[in-house]
Write a protein that binds this DNA or RNA. Structure first.
Lengths: 345, 345
DNA sequence: ATGAAAGCGCTAACAC
DNA sequence: GTGTTAGCGCTTTCAT
C-alpha cells in the first residue's frame, strides 16, 4: 500500500534541504529567486511525493480563495443547467472553483446560502433571479464580496454587475403576437409570483393589452411554480373551471410543456384550438413535439458574461457595461399559427 | 456608508476584552468554559459587527473543510439536475457545501477536476459516471479523500462507496421487451461509448438477443453523445442509410427525445411503425409527447444515498451497504405498443 | 539565490 | 471560567 499522506510545504522543504520560502517560490513558479537546479530538485520531490499545495492555507495567507459561489433557486429545475454550465465554464477557465447552493425561492434560504458562501470566503457570488429584497442585498454588500446578479435587475447600488433579459418586453412581445392573431382571451400562466421576473412579464402582458385597447381578465391570470407539473395543473384548472381562453402565454417553457401535454391529452388541439407561447427557449422547446414557440434569451452566454464581470471586479479590472439588459426574441414554432412577424414590436 | 469589513476573531476578542479562545468557545458554542454573561457580551459584539468566522481558517486548523466535491460529465446535460439536487440537498442538510466541476467525459479533465478538489481539501468527492480508469482511481486514493461513485461500479477497492443502476439488466429488459413484441431489427443508440454504462447496456442488449437465439447486427449499433441533438442525427443516419429497423433502444431519454422528434418529422409513426425505449426516466420522459417508454432508476434518491455514505466515511461512521446496485424498472408509456408485461424478466 | 520570521484566522491543549 | 501558547500550511518581507 502506497503512502496515503497529504504532505506539507515544510516536509518538502526539509526533504530538499531548503526553506519553505524556496518551495513556495517554485510552487507559484515565481520566475526569480531560485536557481534552476534547486527548482528541479524541489519539483522532483513534489512529484515523487505527489504533493498538492493546500489551497485553503494559501487562501488564508493571500486573502483570496479562488472560489466563487453560485446560488440558484433550484439546481433541479431544467432551466438551470445552461446557467450553471456557463458559470462553471468561465470560472474554470480563469482558475476559479464554484460552490453551488439552492435558495428554493425562499428569501431566508437565499440569505443563508449567501452567508454560508461568505463564510467560505468565496471571492465573488453569482445570484440567480433571487427573491432577496433590495435592502437585504444592499446590506449584504458589507461583506465585501463581488456580487453579480443574473435574471434580475435592481438599481445598480446593490450589485457590482447584473444581466437580465428584458422581461417586460418579453411578456409584451408574446402577448402582442397573440393579440395580433386575433385572440382576446389570453391566459397568462406564471411560475413563482415572488420572483421579480414574473411580475415584469405580467406587466408586459398588461401593456400589450392596454396598447391594443383590450381588457385584462383576472380569471386568466394564474401562477404557481416553474415546473412541468404545475403546467399540467394549470391546464386542468382552466379546463375544469370552464374558463374560456383562446391562447396562452407562460413564464417558462416547463410550464408550457406541462400545459401542452395536458391540453393535448384532454383533446384540445394546439395550435388550432389554442395557441401557446413558452418562455426562455430552453433546449426542450425545440425538441418538444409540437415544438414550442417561445421567447428566447442567450442564457449560457449571459451566465458566462456575468461570471466574467464578477471575476473582473475580484481581480480589480475594469468592468465595462456592469448592468446589462438583453432584448428577448420571439421564436415562432409549432404551438402558434404562422402569420407574418418581423420582430417589429 | 456602513463599515465594509470582514472582522477577525482577534478583533472581537479585543473589543470584548477577552481572549481569542473565549470567542472561539462561544462561536462553536462550546457548552462549557464560558460564563453566561461573557457569552452574551461576545455574541452582541459578533452581531453588531456582523462578524462571520472564517471557515477557511477553521478548516485548516481542524483539517476539515466541510466541503464536498461533485464532478459530473456535464452540468449542462438535462440528466444531471436530479443528481446535483440530490447531492446538494443531502450535503446541505449535514452542513456541507458542494463544489461542482465538469469532466466533459474526458479522463484528463476528470483527473484535473478531482485534483483541483483535493487542492481545495474537500472532505469527500462524489464522482458521477466517470471515465476514469481503475488504475487512476486506485492511485487517487492516496490523497485520502472519501470517494463515492455514482453510476459506475468498480471493484470495491477504488472507492469508499458506490451506487449504480444495473445497466446490463436495464439494457436487457428494454431489448427483451421489444424482442418479445416480435421485433427482430432493434437499433441500439448510445451516448458516449467510453462511459462504462454504455458498454454495459450494450451487453444487456446482446444478452437479450442471445437468450432469444437472435443475431445482433453491427449496423444497428450506433453511438455518439448523450444529447437531443445526437438523437436527431442518429435518426437521420438510420433513415438516410436506408437501414431497416423496427424498434429502437437508447442509452438516454435525451437521445430518445431527439430520435422521436426527428422520426416523427420524417413521417415515421411512433409506436406504430417503430417502437422506442429511452433510458433513465427523467422528468422529460413523462412530459414528452408521445410520452417515452423508458428504463427507470431513482436518481435523486441514489444521489442522496451516495452523499450520505460519503459523509459517513468523512465523519468516521459505519457505512453499511457501501457498494449498491439498483434494479432498473421498465416503464411503459406511449412510445411502445401495449402488451402484457409484468416485470417478469 | 536563499533563509528566518512574522503573519493570515482559527482551534486546542494546558495552565491557572 | 478564562488566558496563553503553539500550531495548522501557506505567503511575504527583509536580511544575508
Amino acid at each position: 500500500m502506497p503512502d496515503r499522506q497529504i504532505h506539507s510545504i515544510a516536509e518538502i522543504a526539509q526533504i530538499c534541504g531548503v526553506s519553505k520560502a524556496t518551495v513556495s517560490r517554485v510552487i507559484n513558479n515565481n520566475p526569480k529567486g531560485v536557481s534552476a537546479e534547486t527548482r528541479e530538485r524541489v519539483l522532483r520531490a513534489i512529484r515523487e511525493l505527489n504533493y498538492r499545495p493546500n489551497a485553503l492555507a494559501r487562501s488564508i495567507a493571500v486573502s483570496r480563495s479562488n472560489m466563487i459561489g453560485l446560488v440558484v433557486p433550484d439546481v433541479g429545475n431544467l432551466f438551470y443547467p445552461q446557467i450553471i454550465r456557463g458559470v462553471t465554464d468561465y470560472a474554470d477557465s480563469k482558475g476559479y472553483a464554484v460552490l453551488v447552493g439552492n435558495s428554493d425561492y425562499n428569501p431566508e434560504r437565499e440569505a443563508q446560502q449567501l452567508l454560508s458562501m461568505v463564510d467560505k470566503r468565496v471571492d465573488g457570488i453569482i445570484l440567480c433571479s433571487g427573491v432577496s429584497n433590495r435592502d437585504f442585498l444592499l446590506d449584504f454588500r458589507r461583506y465585501n464580496v463581488a456580487l453579480g446578479l443574473i435574471g434580475r435587475s435592481f438599481d445598480t447600488s446593490v450589485s457590482n454587475a447584473s444581466i437580465t433579459g428584458d422581461n417586460v418586453r418579453g411578456g409584451y412581445k408574446s402577448a402582442a403576437y397573440l393579440i395580433r392573431g386575433g385572440h382576446r382571451r389570453i391566459a397568462y400562466v406564471e411560475g413563482n409570483p415572488d420572483v421579480s421576473g414574473s411580475r415584469e412579464r405580467l406587466e408586459g402582458y398588461r401593456q400589450a393589452h392596454t396598447a391594443a385597447g383590450l381588457p385584462v381578465y383576472q380569471e386568466l391570470l394564474l401562477s404557481g411554480e416553474y415546473s412541468i407539473q404545475y403546467g399540467r395543473l394549470a391546464a386542468d384548472q382552466l379546463l375544469n373551471r370552464k374558463i374560456q381562453f383562446d391562447a396562452i402565454t407562460t413564464g417558462s417553457d416547463l410550464i408550457a410543456i406541462g400545459m401542452v401535454s395536458q391540453l393535448l391529452q384532454r383533446g384540445v388541439r394546439i395550435p388550432e384550438d389554442v395557441e401557446l407561447i413558452g418562455f426562455n427557449n430552453t433546449e426542450l422547446a425545440s425538441a418538444f413535439h409540437p415544438a414550442l414557440s417561445t421567447v428566447s434569451k442567450p442564457h449560457y452566454d449571459m451566465a458566462q458574461y456575468i461570471t466574467e464581470q464578477v471575476i473582473r471586479v475580484v481581480e480589480g479590472e475594469q468592468v465595462k457595461l456592469p448592468h446589462t439588459v438583453v432584448e428577448p426574441q420571439l421564436v415562432l414554432r409549432e404551438t402558434t399559427l404562422p402569420r407574418p412577424y418581423d420582430n417589429e414590436y
